[in-house]
Amino acid sequence: MVRAYTQEHVYRHPWSRVTSAAFRKFTHPSTPILLSHITDVHTLSRHLDSNNGVFTTTRSITVKSPTLPFLVRRFLSSPSVVIHCVESTVVHAQNRTMDIVARNVSMRGLIEVEESSRYVPHPENEEEWTMFRQETNIRCKPLSVIAAVAEKVEARCAERFLQNSVRGREIMERICIDLQKDSVVVETGAVDATEALSSSMW
């Protein structure tokens, strides 16, 4: 069985700011509080195609799973597990598109999660707004665990995904506002942008 979700959100910030925020999302100081399931983030690869303005990067995101149903817990001898996810991002600066595909690389025998996201300038206000669209597919493998339990895991993961995606958007909005403040500061030439950013982070 597969559970599929589509979500859309309009950021009232320009594409350059929103995609900057997307890169900062997991390393922002408020992330550990709001997205407590994320325990580690690393960049594994990066490549710039300087002819076409295409930047590609891969990050690993380590998450703690929700508390698992007891049958699965018993099978794994742990109330929750650490799952590694890999997120590949391709940004076309020229066309202003950012595509992100994230999937789990561990526990694939039990569950497969794939999340595809896209940030593009909003067709109604290309310079000021950004359209975000995300598709999430969650599939639990039957394995030796009985189907009913598998479905519970699936449902719980899905619930958690939806909660986190709302929190993720909250963080994105916050970072956008921080970046907006910084750009105002930079324009007036008062403070270096990075210093303003680090002092606005708590």
Binding site: S20, L48, A193
Partner: peptide
Amino acid sequence: HDCFNRWYTEKFSKGQWDKE
């Protein structure tokens, strides 16, 4: 990440992609 974020925000996302 600090260096990357600065580069992405100030240059790449604004259309300056020629320099890594």
